[in-house]
C-alpha cells in the first residue's frame, strides 16, 4: 500500500519534472510567457490516447504525440510570436478556451465531455512504468541541460533579455522564438503522452487553468532559467501538496485546500522571492 502510493507519487513527480522544465525553456530561458503551455500537454495526451486506442503501438504513439504537438506549437508560434509581449500572453491564454471548446465538441474523435477511458498502458506494472518514465525524464533533462548551455540556448536568453539587441547582432529572433516554442511543446507532448498512459483516461478537464496554475507554481518556485531549479520546484511542491493530505480532515476539501495553498505560495514568491529557489532571472 505504502509502496503503491510511493510509486504513483514518484511517477507523477517525474512527469511533472518534464512538463515544468519544458515550460522553463520557453518562459524562463526565452521570455515567452506561453500561458497555454498546458494546452500542449493536453494535445500530447489526446494524441497518444487516440492513436493507441486505434491500435497503434505505444512507442509510435509517444513519438508522434511529441511531433504532432510540436507541429501545432510551431504553427501557433509562427503566427503569435510576432505579437508584442502583452498580446502574446493574451492569445496563448485564449488557446486554453479554444482547446476546451474543441475537445468538448469534436465528439467523434474525443467523445466530448465523456472523455476517453480504457487507454492502454505502456507497461502494465507500475513500478516498471515508473522506471521507464524515469529513463525518459533523464533523456529529456540531459537534452535540456545541453540545450541551455549551447549557443542556441544562449541566443534564447539573449532574446529574453533584449530582443532588439539580439537582432542587431544578426540573430533572426523570429526563428529562434518559434524554435523555442517548438522544442518546449515537443516535450510537453511527450509528458502528456506519459501522463495519459499512466492515468489511462483523458477528458477536457486536462486543459483546465487549475492544472496550469500548479505547473506555473512549480516553475516559479524552482526559479526561471534554471533546469535544476525546476526539478527542485516540482519535488518540493509535490511533497508539500501531499503533506496537506494529512492536515486536511474533510476529504471533500483536500482538493480545493491543496490548490489554494499552492496558489498562496505562488503569490508569496511573486512578491518576496521573484527568483524562486534557484532562478537566474526575476519573474
Amino acid at each position: 500500500m505504502i509502496t503503491d502510493f510511493f510509486i504513483s507519487f514518484s511517477t507523477y513527480v517525474i512527469i511533472y519534472i518534464i512538463i515544468v522544465s519544458s515550460f522553463n525553456i520557453s518562459f524562463g530561458f526565452t521570455g515567452l510567457v506561453n500561458l497555454g503551455h498546458m494546452v500542449f500537454f493536453g494535445i500530447g495526451a489526446y494524441t497518444s490516447a487516440i492513436l493507441t486506442l486505434h491500435g497503434m503501438p505505444w512507442y509510435f504513439a509517444l513519438i508522434l504525440a511529441g511531433l504532432f504537438t510540436s507541429l501545432i506549437g510551431a504553427a501557433i508560434a509562427a503566427i503569435t510570436v510576432r505579437l508584442k509581449g502583452d498580446y502574446f500572453q493574451i492569445v496563448t491564454l485564449g488557446l486554453v478556451f479554444i482547446a476546451i471548446a474543441i475537445s468538448r465538441n469534436w465528439i467523434s474523435l474525443t467523445r466530448g465531455a465523456l472523455g476517453l477511458p480504457g487507454i492502454p498502458p505502456i507497461i502494465k506494472d507500475n513500478f516498471n512504468y515508473m522506471l521507464f518514465t524515469f529513463l525518459v525524464c533523464v533523456i529529456c533533462l540531459a537534452f535540456f541541460y545541453w540545450l541551455t548551455k549551447s549557443e542556441t540556448g544562449k541566443i534564447f536568453q539573449a532574446i529574453r533579455d533584449d530582443e532588439t539587441a539580439a537582432s542587431i547582432l544578426g540573430k533572426n529572433t523570429y526563428f529562434y522564438k518559434v524554435l523555442s516554442i517548438t522544442i518546449s511543446t515537443f516535450f510537453a507532448g511527450i509528458a502528456g503522452s506519459l501522463f495519459v498512459h499512466f492515468i489511462k483516461f483523458v477528458d477536457p478537464s486536462i486543459f483546465d487553468l487549475d492544472f496550469f496554475v500548479i505547473i506555473l507554481t512549480m516553475l516559479v518556485a524552482g526559479g526561471l532559467a534554471s533546469i535544476t531549479g525546476s526539478i527542485i520546484g516540482v519535488v518540493s511542491l509535490a511533497i508539500t501538496s501531499e503533506a496537506l493530505r494529512f492536515v486536511v480532515v474533510n476529504p471533500e476539501l483536500i482538493g480545493p485546500v491543496r490548490h489554494m495553498s499552492l496558489m498562496l505560495i505562488l503569490i508569496l514568491i511573486l512578491i518576496y522571492r521573484p527568483r524562486g529557489i534557484l532562478g537566474k532571472v526575476n519573474v
Binding site: 510567457v33 500572453q89 491564454l93 496554475v213 506555473l216 516559479v220 503569490i267 511573486l270 519573474v283
Partner: peptide, 11 residues
C-alpha cells in the same frame, strides 16, 4: 507586467 498578470490569474 508578467508577475501582475500571473498574480491576477492566480487570484
Amino acid at each position: 507586467g508578467v508577475p501582475l498578470l500571473v498574480a491576477s490569474i492566480v487570484i
